[in-house]
Design a protein around this nucleic acid. Structure first.
Length: 427
RNA sequence: GGAGAGAUGGCAGAGUGGUCGAUUGCGGCGGUCUUGAAAACCGUUGACCCUCACGGGUCCGGGGGUUCGAAUCCCUCUCUCUCCGCCA
């Protein structure tokens, strides 16, 4: 949520910035300012009345003690009347605030100055490409066929037991998953992140705090009987840990890493996008999350990008980094870089990480603040990034490293997998 | 799931209808003393809203109610603890 102070300070700038995200916010901004004016005036009037009732109540107390009952009774009536007026104002104040909130909540975060304009993924800017694209043999297979050939993953079993998009990992495939999770966690810990194991279910307040609610209600699995949501990413619990906290400046930056299962309904996806591991309803991901001093957050974003790039280099995967354009950025983000790996058999780039600075957008929603040098509380910045999401990494590893009857494992992973090559299952 | 107890400021812990935003202790910060430190002593120490400011208002787990007046009484929700049951 954009702080209302930001809007009041420079409404024109806010409107201009939001055009980068292809939003015409003019009427919303004007409405917000008008509602905020009403809010202030109503509050002022209500406070005046309440001050009067407070004073009267004290007087009545004193009168009672000194036995002047009639005078006290007269004041009582007066105070009841004042109280009723105050009540009416309180109601108006609440209505105004609710309305104000509902407009504010619908505004996406302001994009950073460096965000290019654009309508869709086609307008993203490639800022870096690294690694060698492998040349495959003519009989090379897409990863879903490799997974079957080496008995690594069963999509059919998942469909039977749960539904499409919930695969079973088996044998060397399961081991590969575990290897990647441990590799990613160890790399993050070596980079100074603190490991967290979060709950996989979150409540409504948490969904609201990081911005999934109310914006993306339909994308999360909802447990109606307990009103809980399955997490779409560890970002939600790990960031909400700090909801409603006032941290010390010396606490920052906070660097956490969490492995979790992620659950996404992915309503409306179809075709080759969802083939094999390309898009799942349940998948594994290691997420890095930082809570930062605003003055440091963009430098921190750079370190997170370097961290993710380092992982891909160690996995020997060709990748590219995209600076997302306004039209392709998420609701909550101020600046996002996506990482894509080359999936050689499918001959397409697959998104495996998204690294974002949310500035104070999430912090404002969840009242995450810190005390600065002058002892004032101010909103912190939040950042996160996938480091990394597993399924598409597995897809690229399998496709890029296939060598007939075996699949080569990159050196960095071998200590974790316990095997150097995936081999055909023993019959 | 059943029975009971509880939720107060960074922490501990008073406060059961009237100048209580809240006694006190610890911790934190500032000062006196000291070559320095400790001890002792003095002072200070929550968040949010309105206001240029003075000042005013709100907040004692969340929400609602009673009352002229609520941290204190009532209702409700959430959470914590103890005992019983079940259980990885």
């Amino acid at each position: 949520m954009i702080p209302i102070s930001t809007i009041r300070e420079n409404p024109e700038k806010v409107i201009n910035r939001l055009t980068i995200k292809n939003i015409d916010a003019k009427s919303a901004i004007l409405q917000i300012i008008a509602l905020d004016d009403v809010r202030k005036e109503t509050q002022r009037n209500m406070d005046d009345l309440l001050a009067q009732t407070n004073n009267l109540a004290k007087e009545i107390g004193i009168l009672f003690k000194s036995g002047k009952k009639e005078e006290a009774d007269a004041l009582k009536q007066k105070n009841t009347d004042l109280k009723e007026q105050a009540k009416a104002l309180e109601q108006k104040l609440e209505e105004t605030q609710t309305k104000l909130q509902s407009v504010l909540v619908q505004l996406p975060n302001l994009p950073h100055e460096s965000v290019p304009s654009g309508k869709s993924a086609a307008d993203n800017i490639i800022v870096k490409q690294a690694g060698e694209m492998p040349v495959l043999q003519p009989d090379a297979m897409p990863h879903w066929d490799i997974a079957t050939k080496f008995d690594l993953i069963s999509f059919d079993m998942g469909s039977k037991v749960t539904g499409a998009g919930f695969p079973f990992y088996k044998g060397q495939g399961a081991r590969l998953q575990r290897a990647l999770i441990n590799f990613f966690l160890d790399e993050a810990i070596a980079a100074g992140y603190h490991e967290i194991q979060p709950p996989l279910l979150i409540n409504e307040d948490s969904g609201y705090g990081t911005g999934q609610l109310p914006d993306k209600e339909g994308q999360m699995y909802h447990i109606g009987i307990d009103n809980l949501y399955l997490i779409p990413t560890a970002e939600v619990p790990v960031t909400n840990l700090y909801r409603n906290l006032i941290l010390q400046k010396s606490d920052l930056p906070i660097k956490n890493v969490a492995y979790s299962n992620c659950f996404r309904r992915e309503a409306g996806s179809y075709g080759k996008d969802v083939r094999g591991l390309n898009r799942l309803h349940q998948f594994d991901k290691v997420e890095i999350v930082q809570i930062a001093n605003p003055s440091d957050s963009y430098a921190i974003l750079d370190t997170m990008i370097e961290h993710v790039a380092g992982l891909l280099a160690k996995l020997e995967l060709p990748y590219r980094i995209l600076r997302l354009c306004g039209g392709d950025m998420s609701f909550t983000s101020a600046l996002t870089f996506d990482f894509e790996v080359w999936s050689a058999a499918q001959e397409r780039w697959l998104e495996v990480s998204s690294v974002s600075n949310f500035e104070n957008f999430q912090a404002n929603r969840m009242k995450l603040r810190f005390k600065d040098d002058s002892g004032k509380t101010q909103l912190a910045h939040t950042l996160n990034g996938s480091a990394l999401a597993l399924p598409r990494i597995v897809a690229a590893l399998l496709e890029n490293n296939q060598q007939g009857d075996q699949v080569r494992i990159p050196h960095a992973l071998r200590a974790y997998t316990g095997y150097d090559y995936i081999s055909l299952p023993k019959v």
